[in-house]
Design a protein around this nucleic acid. Structure first.
Lengths: 351, 351
DNA sequence: GCTTACTTTGTAACTAGTTACTGAAACTAG
DNA sequence: CTAGTTTCAGTAACTAGTTACAAAGTAAGC
């Protein structure tokens, strides 16, 4: 096992002091000749500076901590890509932790991030870490909370969120425009974002003369509960003599499960039931699923910038969702491809 | 901005030396009474030890570096989840970098990982970093290369890969079993994994009396090139009087694009053309796409273990792919759901 | 030629921890 | 009651860097 060269080895090799080497590396006042000798020694010894030691002196590391609830969602994926983009542009790295929706992990991983003295922390969870994140903010670590309502962001933290009420409104207007009236909702629970989306949906539907009763909203915490939730909505519609003609899913995480539950029952989309869900994803085009898209990449970019730029006061950013109309609500507009996929030219080459 | 408590502050508060605090924190010989006083001081001052300083002394940090070529692939996602699992179980964190398939980023990010003195490095790329990873291995940092052939793994590195020849063979046998004979391949280029998959496919097809000519394999580096590649395969089949009846995609990254190119031309799957591709994904069930699955989560787990357990010699692990038969090749077997999605019970509640 | 000013470099103290060594109690044994 | 051993805590040196300050060297001005 070969020992790594230290700044002292470089100094000895170049015949200067460690202070001079440090100055060459970080751009202090040095002679051209000295700098050349030092750089030659750096190359000869394959010296790689120790970022940990630098971090000790600077009081913080150069990495951006990101704690994600659920790495499997395309929303979070694009978010991370945005953060990583900013990190790479600032000689920084993303330190990633996935909580798998477990509170104990979340606490442990945010703590580890704190121990690592991350230059900033971006959290998409923040359910059990308010105390710690508040303290980190006090200690000068910019903390950004994502996808939680502005209203309940912990003090001292920046907040990046979606206009969830608007997301619900877009769904309502679109479904009504497609002639649907008996609407059921699959929601993932008590998170503020979920509540706001449902509230926005309900208010807009009411404005359109389509009330959304409490029991038309079913909660499914996990994918396993989706099937039962869909059943309950179907039964409810049948019992009232208003057969369900639309299902709204308020979280991208459950899109696959809701879609599977529908098709497993032989339900045609949009023939029997219209379907709208949250968050755009690569396969949505192929499946013709209409979605409410979040600008996730841009949100990641902004989150990264808040960490790097360290604005003085807490910043609150609310992004606006957009409706991507495909065919799952029976609309007759042109198809909208998932951004990033290639253009699909018409070809005369059908065999 | 509140200054963080240091070990010195804790020592002063508890009326002991820093050495004693360190012993309490790391489990040395101390009196019960002293330990209590120290822990009280830790709680009172909300002391969070500085992992950077610890890392300086230990010679390395406690984080696992992961450099990913393309974060959008579900394969890499599951891989990261596996690594993160091991990391979390070892009070470690994953330091993630996405290269976006750009070599300059890869070099910069592996370098940054080295500077961060990661306790181990897991790379899925390794195209331009052989020199550095070799040196890191010499310096005692376990380096794992994933998804590259064992044959060309850089010296000193562990290697985790898939039996790509077997993956190709599985595709060949399955397509032949479904009665397909005019097969076209969309490959993503010159990576060893791609070459091996194609070679395995070709050899197995030849054994079945179905030669795969060179020009039946089209390379598409990016999603934008897929459409043209599919066109070329269709033209080739038409010109020879052997209309294409199957398309193989040797990389999961291009699955969406190939599927989109097919459907955009009005081609029915499997009616007109059968379709097999690499890597299972959540929507594959809904779309009925037959795939060759890699045990990506297990591969991540193993990669993490190699970093944590630091075996002496270089380890080479080859995982076996499995065929997940759905409907895209015209097979008449039962549907196989994507693991992790809920069971889909038959329901009498179709409206 | 001497003073002043500026540039360049080295010394030593600093970051926040860990640990080898040392000495003082406390406990056990004869 | 003393000697030997063990336990516990402190001092100081160490990790790999950065930087304040001082010293030395060089150039310009008088």
């Amino acid at each position: 096992m070969v020992k790594r060269a230290t700044i002292g080895d470089v100094a000895a090799d170049a015949g200067v002091s460690t202070a001079t080497v440090s100055r060459v590396l970080n751009g202090g006042a040095v002679t051209e000749a000295t700098a050349t000798r030092v750089w030659e020694a750096v190359a000869r010894l394959e010296y790689t500076p120790n970022a940990l030691t630098r971090g000790v002196f600077a009081g913080r590391s150069s990495t951006i901590g990101v704690v994600i609830r659920d790495l499997s969602s395309p929303f979070y994926l694009d978010l991370i890509r945005g953060i990583d983009e900013v990190a790479a542009a600032n000689d920084s790295l993303v330190m990633l932790a996935n909580t798998f929706r477990r509170v104990d992990r979340e606490v442990a991983q945010v703590r580890t991030m704190d121990e690592q003295r991350v230059r900033g922390l971006i959290v998409t969870t923040g359910e059990a870490t308010d105390g710690r994140t508040r303290r980190m903010a006090e200690n000068g670590t910019p903390c950004v909370i994502i996808a939680r309502s502005v209203l309940d962001a912990p003090p001292g933290m920046h907040s990046i969120s979606l206009d969830n009420v608007e997301a619900g409104r877009l769904m309502a207007v679109h479904l009504a425009g497609c002639g649907r009236s008996s609407i059921g909702v699959v929601s993932s629970g008590r998170r503020t974002s979920q509540i706001e989306r449902t509230a926005g949906l309900r208010r807009a539907l009411a404005d359109l003369g389509l009330p959304l009763p409490e029991d038309a909203v079913m909660v499914a915490e996990t994918e396993d509960e989706v099937s039962g939730a869909v059943d309950a909505l179907l039964i409810r519609g049948r019992d009232r003599g208003e057969p369900l003609d639309a299902i709204v899913c308020t979280t991208g995480r459950l899109t696959v499960a809701v879609h599977a539950a529908l098709t497993a029952r032989g339900i045609a989309i949009p023939g029997d039931i219209a379907f709208v869900t949250m968050d755009d994803f690569p396969w949505a085009t192929a499946l013709g699923i209409t979605v409410i898209a979040q600008p996730s990449y841009q949100m990641g970019l902004k989150a990264g910038e808040l960490v790097v730029d360290r604005p003085s006061g807490p910043v609150e950013l609310v992004f606006t969702p957009t409706l991507v109309a495909r065919t799952s609500c029976g609309e007759r507009q042109g198809l909208i491809p998932y951004p990033g996929s290639s253009a699909l030219p018409e070809s005369p080459l059908v065999p």
